[in-house]
């Protein structure tokens, strides 16, 4: 500290960066208690890279891979759901915990309230169907289409998988091409392979 204080120095010192972690945590808790949040979010480090987890008061609404751009995903959530989007990790503790168990190989299904408001129409039907594909099993895009009573909707199933708002939790990684090849994945093919290997190994 110096006594050599011009007004600018003084103002710089008053404006010195401060750690707001504790204040932010209090805001998260009170905002959630008072029902003021549209979306709470956090990130989680996993074997397939950092994931963004976001929840509304109704349940988990979005899981995103880093390659989707977390800022872009949050901006999209603010537009589509509501702009009161706050970093509030505690609100996502159950989801984070279950994902950690999944990646550790000790959980084969998720028991979380899900908010499906980002899925609609045929895509929504695909997303609702996907959890019926058991852990460690796979189906082709065509089989999923057939299960939904629309066997020609193979491309639409592919599009639905590519726009799954809840990857990993809603297991679009269990859908492959009919020739057994991997097909695309919104988290990248390496992530898709890693998830399938994890499930086959368990």
């Amino acid at each position: 500290m110096t006594n050599d204080s011009t007004p600018t120095d003084l103002l710089d010192r008053l404006a010195a960066p401060t750690d707001l972690t504790g204040l932010h945590r209090l805001l998260e808790l009170r905002a959630a208690q008072e029902g003021l949040l549209d979306v709470a979010y956090r990130t989680l480090d996993t074997p397939v890279g950092p994931l963004l987890l976001a929840a509304t008061p109704s349940g988990l609404v979005r899981v995103a891979y880093e390659r989707e751009g977390f800022d872009a995903v949050l901006a999209d959530l603010a537009t589509r759901i509501g702009s009161r989007v706050l970093l509030a990790p505690q609100q996502l503790d159950p989801a984070a915990h279950q994902l950690e168990e999944y990646f550790a190989g000790s959980r084969s299904r998720f028991e979380l309230p899900l908010d499906h408001s980002l899925s609609s129409g045929f895509r929504g039907r695909v997303h609702a169907y996907l959890p019926q594909i058991a852990y460690g099993r796979t189906e082709s895009y065509g089989e999923v289409a057939a299960h939904l009573g629309n066997p020609r909707a193979v491309r639409a199933v592919g599009t639905a998988c590519a726009t799954n708002p809840l990857p990993v939790v809603v297991p679009c990684h269990r859908v492959l091409r009919s020739d057994g090849s991997l097909g695309g994945y919104l988290g990248g093919t390496a992530a898709k392979t890693a998830l399938l290997e994890l499930e086959h190994a368990a």
Binding site: L20, L27, A75, A78, T79, S83, V85, L86, L87
Partner: peptide, 9 residues
């Protein structure tokens, strides 16, 4: 206001 509130904080 459409920007995520976290940015404001």
């Amino acid at each position: 206001m459409q920007q995520p509130f976290e940015h404001t904080v």
